Simulated assay, not measured.
Amino acid sequence: MSRWFWAFLGYSLVCGLIRIPADNLENIVTPTDDETAIGLWVFSQAYDIIVATPLSMGLSWVFLKAARYEPFTLSDIFGAFSRNYLNAIGAGLLKAILILVGLLLLIVPGLYLLIKLAFVEYLIVDRKMGMIEAMKESWHMTEGREGTLLALMAMSVLIFIGGMLLCIVGVIPAIIWLSCAYAVLYHTYCLVDQPKEPEPRPDSGNPFSM
């Protein structure tokens, strides 16, 4: 983060501006009637699915390339659009639905799915996997590592709260730091698992097995 902080900050701000219709449309346009309000909500949700979600995956790819000390440019934030667009949309939507349903089921299943599907975004853009294949692989990659990811998730909450307490401005470096942390963790697990790739891994308990 310290090496490329200003690049990360600039890229994140660009993504934030492009995401505005998905995140803050209600603050920009005031609906005059219920029909307009519904139309704005539908547009916002559609924009989130077809633009904001792939864009976020592209930003994750930038952090991953930095973790590997590979060169990256601003155009990489659009990597999901050129590399694996349809699967980026499908994976983002399916993951969101699964986690939402899991959270509604007494929260714990949702948190578990959040951990097990933590690397889907990277797999979609980095390895150009299909959405089911990416979920299956993320499930494999997190096997036996749930405790580490849970600890990172808990740490993320504390760091984010700390950023909020620092006059809110601290949220920006907090988000960048956490994005770096997840990218480094994914890259580390890829390196650790590399020698095991030729060996088939059991699909026991993996709901995404085909």
Rank of each mutant, 00 (worst) to 15 (best):
Q45H: 07
G92M: 02
R83T: 15
F63T: 00
F78Q: 04
T73M: 11
Y47H: 01
T73F: 09
L64T: 10
A67R: 06
A88Q: 02
S60W: 11
Y69T: 07
K95Q: 14
V51F: 01
A66Q: 08
R83S: 11
R68A: 13
R68S: 11
V62C: 01
Q45N: 09
P54V: 04
I89M: 14
I49N: 01
S60Y: 11
T53S: 13
F72S: 14
A80P: 03
A80L: 05
I49W: 14
L74M: 15
A88C: 06
S56K: 11
S82Y: 06
R83D: 05
V62M: 00
G92E: 01
K65I: 07
T53P: 00
L94H: 02
I89D: 03
W61A: 06
P71D: 10
S82W: 05
L74V: 13
S44G: 02
Y85M: 03
L55H: 02
A88I: 00
L94E: 03
A66P: 03
V51C: 06
A66W: 13
V51Y: 05
V51G: 09
N87F: 08
V51M: 08
L93N: 02
Y69C: 12
T73L: 06
N84F: 10
F78E: 00
A46F: 13
L86A: 15
P71S: 09
A46I: 13
A52I: 00
P71K: 10
L55Q: 04
I49T: 14
R68Y: 09
A46N: 02
Q45E: 10
I49C: 05
Y47T: 09
F72I: 10
L94I: 14
S44A: 13
F81E: 02
A67C: 01
V51Q: 02
N87P: 02
P54Q: 12
I77P: 08
N84V: 09
A52V: 01
N87W: 10
I50D: 11
Y47A: 09
T53Q: 08
A52E: 09
